[in-house]
């Protein structure tokens, strides 16, 4: 079954081409739509809701053509906009009830569904207070609730994690995952952050400049090779344990990555080792033991989608794997010095 299908969909404004012969075929599940600002994500959503005519090509949502069945589509689809859209002087309950009625739900059903939906998105007693006093996280939940209140078959979420702190972001991503797994509602979620989509989505579509860059399942993006993240302590014998381990691992023929964390604080003492099989774990364990270092952690880390793109796009600095497994980067000593400083403070 196809939820969203577009066929050489184009949208041209007098001076800008927002979508350029975009052909998509999106099935049920959680689908991430990734692209930079101005890549055509919002234009695509407008067309899918039947609010803006395409210049050429066709699109169908839930099997309904967007140009002829816009109203029927909007009855079955929920939409959460990127921007703030809540009046501050009414309560979440009043607002969502009104929006449910605007979706065609009879008054009693609108109230019941509102109570249910607000509970599912995690709003309890505060739903009777005016929205003006809510935190950003609570407002995002109200926005999500109004998109879900009429029990749509598909929701379009435009940047739902915008403005949220890390905890709020995780909760929102978990909620989005549940929309499909628990509620059975397919999701199209846009973001410009690949990292959060790979944890949430079954399928990722990348658009750039109105063109389809790539469309495949999330596992395709991340399965190519597994990576081990290894962190070790320093010892008296090896004042820089990380450097010593890197040397030793390279010596036994393992490939080390310069990971995504490169350049971030704390990146200096995590080594990313390419795992070719079970024996890699043994090799790492034995090498660490031989050096007499403490193994703080050794965990499996999936490839980030971002790394896949960096492989394709060599112009991104600092990100591409260094040939020959020698991740020697100019700024490494600086990081090591910082780590040692931090370590001695702790000791």
């Amino acid at each position: 079954m196809t939820v969203i299908a577009t066929e050489s969909l184009s949208k041209r404004y007098p001076r800008v081409t927002a979508l350029d012969r975009l052909s998509l075929d999106i099935g049920p599940g959680v689908t991430g739509l990734v692209g930079a600002n101005g890549a055509g994500k919002s234009t695509l959503i407008k067309i899918l809701l039947g609010l803006s005519p395409a210049t050429e090509g066709s699109a169908a949502v839930l099997g309904l053509d967007v140009t002829t069945h816009g109203s029927a589509i909007r009855e079955r689809v929920g939409y959460m906009p990127e921007h703030d859209c809540l009046p501050p002087d009414v309560s979440a309950t009043e607002f969502v009830v009104h929006m449910a009625r605007m979706s065609g739900l009879p008054p009693t059903a609108a109230r019941e569904r509102t109570a249910d939906t607000l509970r599912h998105v995690g709003l309890y007693e505060e739903r009777y207070r005016p929205i003006g006093g809510y935190s950003t996280g609570m407002k995002q939940r109200v926005k999500l609730a109004q998109a879900l209140v009429h029990d749509p078959q598909l929701v379009l979420l435009d940047e739902p994690t915008n403005g949220l702190d890390p905890v709020g972001r995780d909760e929102m991503l978990g909620l989005i995952r549940r929309i499909y797994t628990d509620f059975g509602i397919s999701v199209l979620v846009t973001s410009h952050l690949l990292g959060e989509l790979e944890r949430t989505c079954d399928h990722v579509v990348v658009v750039d400049g109105g063109k389809l860059l790539r469309s495949s399942s999330t596992s395709d993006f991340t399965q190519s090779t597994a990576t081990l993240a290894v962190e070790v302590t320093d010892s008296d014998e090896h004042p820089d344990g990380t450097a010593a381990l890197r040397k030793a691992l390279t010596g036994v023929g393992l490939t080390l990555h310069a990971g995504e964390e490169q350049g971030l604080p704390g990146a200096g003492h995590v080594l990313l080792v390419e795992a070719t099989g079970d024996q890699t774990y043994d090799t790492v364990r034995d090498t660490v033991a031989d050096l007499g270092l403490g193994l703080v952690r050794m965990e499996q880390r999936r490839h980030h989608i971002a790394e896949v793109f960096r492989d394709n796009d060599q112009s991104v600095p600092g990100g591409q794997p260094v040939p020959g497994g020698q991740p020697v980067l100019g700024d490494r000593p600086v990081h090591t010095a910082q780590q040692k400083g931090a370590g001695s403070d702790g000791a």
Partner: peptide, 23 residues
């Protein structure tokens, strides 16, 4: 009770217009 889907009536455009009018 988990998530309950809605199978009831969807009264559509004219009802929504009336609701907006009365609100």
């Amino acid at each position: 009770i988990g998530y309950r889907s809605y199978d009831g009536a969807r009264l559509g455009r004219s009802y929504a217009r009336k609701s907006l009018f009365s609100q």
